[in-house]
Structure formats: structure tokens, C-alpha cells
């Protein structure tokens, strides 16, 4: 509803006036709503980490062995890429809030670029895995195909969780393109930037999930192995 909303006034018995909060243009409400949505993401990934930890407890040595086979270089590159994309996103929002719309758009494009780099690196990594016989649905990833239960579970969860994370990155790129469209049509502006704020929050959440996904899968089996 785009029409300008004039807040209502409620009058108490002493005649004092109180501004009524309407649902239109409710900045704090929009922020709260988006945070609540992000909490559902936290619970969703929380449940997946729980599944993962459950089997880490049951198949401890297998998990460490499987983890040491992942490509830490590519994973590390992606970590840094995502870190910088969080910076550009944050600076973009800052520029938007300080009135520099052009700078904000540049920063969003930069974030999209970094997100694409992340996906490219990820695709390369999965291709390498595929050639080593590690991918969902391959015969070598079935029970009795040469790998232990723990290794199959580790790699299965690895593809599930990094895949879901990658899916969030794709959604994020879509959201940022939509945001650019809204900025161009003037619906998001320095005075009315809740959408930009929430998409920046979303991007930070995607980063936040990676902060745990990365060490869990890549670093558990790094360095000196203690069974």
C-alpha cells in the first residue's frame, strides 16, 4: 500500500494524545519481523548441526579422516571472499543511510560480484570432489561402496549443508538484484531503506552460517590428528 499514511491519534481520559502505531511503514516492525525470520533459519541450521554432531559422536574417527580430505585452500578462499562481501554490503547500507545512493548501488554490485566468485569457487570445488568419486548419489557413496558409514555421512552432510548454504547465496543474489530494481524505481531511498537494511541482515546471516559451516567441515580434520 503505497499511499501516504497519516498516523492516528488516540486520546486518553486526561485528554493527552498518543500516536497510534499503524502497520504502514513500520520500520521497527519490519526489522523485528526480519529478525524473527532469521531465527527460523538459525533453528533450521541448528537442527542440521545437531544431526551432524550426533554422527560426529558416533563416528568420531571416520569424521576426522573424511574432513582431512576436503580442500582447505578453496574453502579458505571462500571464507575470505565472503568476509569481504559482508564488508561491501555493510558499507553499501552505510552509504544508503548517509544519502549516497549511487555509492550504495556500486557497493551492492560489488557484493553480487563477490557472491558470484564464491559460487564459482564452490562449483570448482564440487567438480574436483566429483572426480574423486565424492558426490551425492554416486555408487562410491553408498553403503558397501568402499567407504565407512561415518565417511558417507560426513560427505553427505557436507553436500547437504554447503548446498543449502549455496542456495542461500543464490537467493541473496536474487534479493540484491531486486533491491537494485527497487532503488532505481525510487521505492528504496535514504529515507525509506528498510528493505536494504533487511537484505544486509540476510547477507550477514549467510556469512554467519558459513562461519560455523567452514570450520566444522574443513578444519575438524586439519593438522595433527588425534583419533
Amino acid at each position: 500500500m503505497s499511499h501516504e499514511y497519516v498516523p492516528e491519534i488516540a486520546v486518553d481520559r486526561e485528554g493527552k494524545e498518543h500516536v497510534v502505531q499503524g502497520w504502514q511503514g513500520d520500520y521497527e516492525g519490519g526489522k523485528l519481523g526480519f529478525w524473527l525470520f532469521m531465527l527460523t533459519e538459525v533453528l533450521m541450521f541448528g537442527a542440521m548441526f545437531m544431526t551432524l554432531t550426533y554422527y560426529f559422536t558416533l563416528h568420531h574417527a571416520d569424521f576426522i579422516k573424511a574432513s582431512s580430505e576436503l580442500d582447505r585452500t578453496l574453502g579458505g578462499v571462500n571464507t575470505v571472499v565472503l568476509l569481504f562481501s559482508a564488508l561491501t554490503m555493510g558499507l553499501g547500507l552505510l552509504k544508503m543511510r548517509s544519502g549516497d545512493v549511487k555509492g550504495a548501488k556500486l557497493m551492492i554490485w560489488l557484493t553480487i560480484l563477490l557472491a558470484a566468485v564464491f559460487l564459482g569457487v564452490k562449483a570448482q570445488e564440487w567438480t574436483n570432489d566429483y572426480h574423486e568419486g565424492i558426490f551425492l548419489g554416486l555408487d562410491s557413496m553408498q553403503a558397501g561402496g568402499g567407504k565407512s558409514f561415518g565417511e558417507i555421512l560426513f560427505f553427505g552432510m557436507y553436500f547437504t549443508m554447503t548446498g543449502l548454504h549455496g542456495f542461500h547465496i543464490i537467493i541473496g543474489i536474487g534479493l540484491m538484484l531486486w533491491l537494485l530494481k527497487r532503488i532505481n524505481s525510487g521505492k528504496v531511498s535514504p529515507d525509506h531503506h528498510i528493505l536494504h537494511f533487511n537484505i544486509a541482515l540476510y547477507w550477514d546471516l549467510v556469512h554467519l552460517i558459513w562461519v560455523f559451516v567452514f570450520p566444522y567441515f574443513y578444519m575438524t580434520g586439519a593438522g595433527v590428528i588425534h583419533g
Binding site: 550426533y54 554422527y55 548419489g137 553403503a143 555421512l153
Partner: peptide
């Protein structure tokens, strides 16, 4: 994909 998350024949735990 037969990851074996819940099927005991593949190493999963139905209790989970």
C-alpha cells in the same frame, strides 16, 4: 541419495 542419515542399514539412527 542414500546418505544414511536415518536408515540403520546405512549407518543412520532412526532414534535421531
Amino acid at each position: 541419495f542414500g546418505i544414511g542419515i536415518f536408515d540403520p542399514a546405512k549407518g543412520g539412527d532412526p532414534v535421531l
